[in-house]
Every structure is written in C-alpha cells, then in structure tokens.
Design a protein around this nucleic acid. Sequence first.
DNA 1: GCGGATCAC
DNA 2: TATGGTGATCCGC
Length: 357
Amino acid sequence: SKLSKEVGQGSGDPSTLSQSMEKTYDTVFLNAKAGMDGVDKKKVQKVVYEMSKGSPSTKRLSCICIHMAVDSKLVKLEAARDLSRTWVHVDMDAFYAAVETLVDPSLAGKPIAVGGTSMICTASYEARKYGVRSAMPGFIARRLCPDLIFVKPDFKKYTHFCGLSREVFREYDPKFIGVSLDEAYLDITEMCRLRIMSAAEVVEELRSKVFAATGLSCSAGVGPNRLLAKVCTDINKPDGQYVLESKRSAVVDFISSLPIRKVPGIGKVTERILREVLDINVCSDLLTKRAYISALFSQISTEFFLSVALGIGATETLQHEQRKSLGHERTFSALEELAELVVGDLAKESLQARTVT
DNA sequence: GCGGATCAC
DNA sequence: TATGGTGATCCGC
C-alpha cells in the first residue's frame, strides 16, 4: 500500500539508482506488510550497500556489472529460443454458461450467470455486455443486469462436455495438456507436417470438430510456445482464432506492445508493483528496465520477466505430474467437517498425508 | 518446514 | 443480505 514511485522516477541514468533505491528500500521493501512478489530483500540490501559506498566511478561500475550480468542472462535465454514447435491453446467460450444453454435452449440469447448470489463462475456473452464477469459476486451482477438469470453450477454436465471436447483434442495431439475443464494446450507440429496443412487450417478444422462433437464454440491461439499461444487465444474470442507466425521478428513485435497484465503469471499485484515502482506497462518495458528488475527481484523472478520480454515460453510437453496437495476450504465451517472431507478424499485415492495444514 | 502472499481457473 | 474453492509456487523466517 506504500509503493514508492522514487525508483521509477530515476529515469535512465543508472547513477541515480542508489539514492532513490535507498529511500525506497526503507519505505517499501523493508516495511511493506504485503510482500513484494519475488523481491529479494537481501539482494536489495546488498545492491544498495554496494552502490551507495565509494566514489561515483565505483557506483557506475556497480551499475555496469548489473547490466553485464543481466545481459548475459538475456543472451542465454535467446540462444535457447525454440521456434520449431506449433502450439495451440484452446479455450471453450463461456463454457459453463454455454453448456447450460445447450441443455436448456430457452436460455439462448439471454444474459445468464452460472453461480449464485455470492459468486459467479461464468457469464454468458449477453451478460458480459452489462459488465457481468466471472469471479464477481452475484448480488453485484444482479444490480448491473436486473434481468440476469442465475443457474446453479452442475459440474457433472461440464465434465461430460469436457470429455467430448477432449476426444477431439486427442485426435490432434494424444499428449495434449488439459489445464481445466474448458482449456487445453495441443502441440500440432506433427499434425501440420503430416497433413501438409497450415496451423490456421488445422485449427479451423479442430474447432469445427469440437463444435460438431459438443455443439459448443471455442477460441484458439497459435504460437511457437504455450505462453504465446495462450495470449493469442484472447485476441479473436469468442468463436475465433489467431495465429502468431513462428518467426523471431513476429514474436518480438507481438510481445513488445503487449500489456504486462495479459501475461499469465502476472496478476493484479505484480502488475501494480511493476507499474508503480518501475513504470513498466508493456512487455518491452521489461527489457528496457532489465537492470532495475535484476537488481530488485530474485533470480527466479528476473528470469521469468526476461523470458516474457523476449516472448519465450515453455515448448516441451511435460509429463503428467503427481498431485502435491489435497484440501478442502470453506469460508465458514467447523474444522472437523473439513477434516472429514479431506480424510474421505485421501481414502478415495488411497493416499496418506505427511503434513496436515 | 511453515505461513503468508500471489496466481490461475 | 450477500465477495468461492482447489491447487500450485515463491519467499522469508
């Protein structure tokens, strides 16, 4: 809540970095209750110390070292860039609402919300015109759209239609990655090669097959990695697709102007930190401010931000991983009831727990 | 190893 | 009237 703007105002001159960071560290990084995602406090401390002692030339040398270190990281990332695969991200349009409309055609064309007065899972596109969104409390949605029709979630239905769509996905990539009931990643590199078809053609066909199998529309994005494919899905939603050319220049042009909030992994808080502290708004800003980023954030976070800035994302097909936790949560409930639920689920999967939280 | 914070869906 | 639940990751301690 006390994000200082002083670092950002340090403009381009690295010699002003130490002064402004010293203050900022004092007011923000040390005292802020809300943790700065990935900000490495020890590192900040060290950088501040190194940069505030000694002569101006020593300070400048420290800055040069930071630039050299981060640039060598950049070179390493760039060298590992893989443009050889073609990834598709598929996202069913307003999935829960679409399924409910399919099952009850009287809902067609009407603003509907799947969920209750406390929380909305999905809003139909008619409802979205009124500003109704998923993750919005139902009573607010009703105020925005008085005619809004509420439908209780029925996950059995959604699981069924999810299964139908996944049968189609399997035809294009037997190792597809199902992210959720309504989203999946497919590597269609082989499919395009075998059938001598462009990615656009393959994905047009895939989407029409999904519609034939389910009666539901979906949107898709295509890119050389999963990060880019996902971002592309948003562009022509609903019932559309967008293909990003697997060429370095096309990728870099595309990512440069992309607002950072569109990047999966950069949420509300990280967006605000990057904007208010470093005046970073689009992905190319991550590149121009890379020295500040590497000085202020952990190695893991820095590498993530740099990869994003270059439009580099995961291209390998990860193997199915084992779950790491299982739990139940209620806003108001007795601990014993929750414990019973957890015990039941553990038994269902023949699991034992090592840690109970 | 744990709790807090953040994120995605 | 009224703002969810599941699972994961990173970080500081």
